[in-house]
Design a protein around this nucleic acid. Structure first.
Length: 411
RNA sequence: CGGGGCAUAGUAUAGUGGUAGUACGAGUGGUUUGGGACCAUUUAGUCUCGGUUCGAUUCCGAGUGCCCCGACCA
């Protein structure tokens, strides 16, 4: 795409109503627009990143048999009453509203109850199990205080998957499959090296839960990590977990971390409360086992920014960057146009800075936008027949001849 | 929800009880073009309501909005 056509603009100054690195940079670079505290719009660039993240998650969920669907944001009161989670005392983040006839509705902050209600219509027999469904949905949570930019908003995009099983053993083995899928996801997002699966307290409803925590100074949690980073334990379960793992908790060092995923085994708790059953081989009614698996898509984007951005701006891993190549023309438009055409024809996602602004501004904007490869075409290039290719993350620069450019930039 | 702070142009910021200034941005014309270049010119602002006052953007009160710390975070 041509940068001259992009409707967003970069900004040299930082907004005064933000402090978190992710919000400052994403707003300055034009990836997000702040509507109110905890509520951000995603512009074309921001949306491209979100879609890249979603696609990675989608592929890994599909690989373990997940079926994508989308539930609704308007939720029925009686559905949530059936598990005792309608009241504001039980759940303090509800947004609630009313239909014109007075019927109360909740705006979805989660979808466990909703999926159980829906699944009841389709799962009747043991032959219908197991089932695994997931969605990318906007969650609405009336947080008392939003903070940390897009890492903790009142409106955010989450992937939530729900698996339903006839037996606990079946649930357990699927749960382990999801853990492996999650590891692949974080690796592909560029967070693999510093993301740990940890025991977490599951709240009042679940005995077994795990969190995926990424070491991150902007995070809200604390992880206790050992020297070679092979063991990481959540602060909230430090005593129990270290005992269980046979680790001396005094050898663990506290580090700040951000929760990027959370998985739970609900077991038959929801089924029992909502009377959701299947018929076994003898025709006897049995409760359905449920587990749920979340990944905060927008939060993952925020964590990637926090971890990789440098003093000059954003730095995207190739896997989630909105474009692979940022092509800069420094007063060599004819040549740059030709290269833009050939890159585009080769299927290499390219944003082409065709604006007539100074070189310095193009470089500064390019660093701010954080596209992995910067390809500079200037007057020098016209003589040498070479482009200057700079890798945003390593800051290394190479001269690449025009004829080898496509091969060089190919994923 | 407890505590603290802030509110001036699109953005970031000065300043004043008596005509509100700067930078960036944006517009126009021109010179530029390898790290946010330069000249000329134009554009645009005191959050809302009330009080004190001859006069309030400034002082006082309320409201609204925003930020930070804590609490909360399935």
């Amino acid at each position: 795409m041509r940068q001259s056509q992009l409707f967003t603009k970069t900004s040299k100054t930082s907004p005064k109503d933000e402090v978190s690195k992710n919000a400052l940079l994403l707003i300055r670079a034009g990836y997000t627009y702040k509507v109110m505290p905890g509520v951000y719009a995603y512009t074309p660039l921001g949306l491209m990143v979100l879609e890249k993240i979603k696609q990675i998650v989608r592929e890994e969920m599909n690989a373990i048999g997940g079926q994508e669907l989308i539930m609704t944001n308007l939720q029925r009161k009686d559905t949530w009453e059936s598990t005792g989670r309608w009241s504001d005392e039980a759940v303090d983040v509800w947004f609630k509203t009313k239909l014109q006839d007075g019927t109360e509705l909740g705006l979805a902050w989660s979808h466990e109850e909703a999926i159980m209600e829906m699944i009841q219509r389709f799962v009747e027999s043991y032959k219908d199990l197991p089932v695994s469904v997931y969605q990318f949905q906007t969650k609405l949570r009336n947080e008392l205080r939003a903070k940390s930019g897009i890492m903790r908003g009142r409106e955010f995009v989450m992937k939530d998957m729900y698996s339903l099983h006839a037996t606990e053993a079946d649930m357990d083995q699927y749960y382990d499959q999801v853990i492996e899928a999650y590891k692949k996801i974080y690796a592909r997002l560029g967070l693999g090296n510093e993301t740990y699966i940890t025991f977490a307290s599951g709240g009042a409803f679940t005995k077994f839960s795990h969190e995926f925590q990424t070491l991150c100074d902007a995070g809200e949690d604390v992880l206790y990590v050992n020297a070679d980073k092979t063991v990481a334990v959540n602060e909230e379960v430090l005593d129990d977990a270290s005992a269980q793992l046979g680790v001396d908790k005094n050898t663990l060092v506290p580090m700040k971390s951000a929760e990027v995923g959370n998985i739970f085994k609900f077991g038959t708790e929801k089924s029992d409360k909502m009377h959701i059953v299947y018929k076994d081989r003898e025709g006897k009614q049995q409760p359905i086992y449920l587990a749920s698996y979340g990944i905060g898509i927008t939060r993952a984007m925020g964590v990637i920014v926090e971890k990789l951005a440098d003093e000059k701006g954003l730095v995207w891993p190739e896997s989630v960057a909105p474009f692979r190549v940022h092509l800069l023309s420094l007063d060599a438009n004819e040549q740059a146009e030709a290269i833009y055409e050939s890159l585009t024809r080769a299927g290499i996602e390219t944003i082409y800075d065709d604006r007539s602004v100074n070189a310095g501004e193009k470089f500064a904007d390019s660093d701010l936008l954080g596209i992995p490869y910067h390809v500079v075409i200037g007057k020098r290039s016209l003589e040498s027949k070479k482009a200057e290719v700079k890798h945003r993350q390593t800051k290394k620069t190479e001269e690449v001849s025009f004829s080898e450019l496509i091969d060089y930039l190919q994923p």
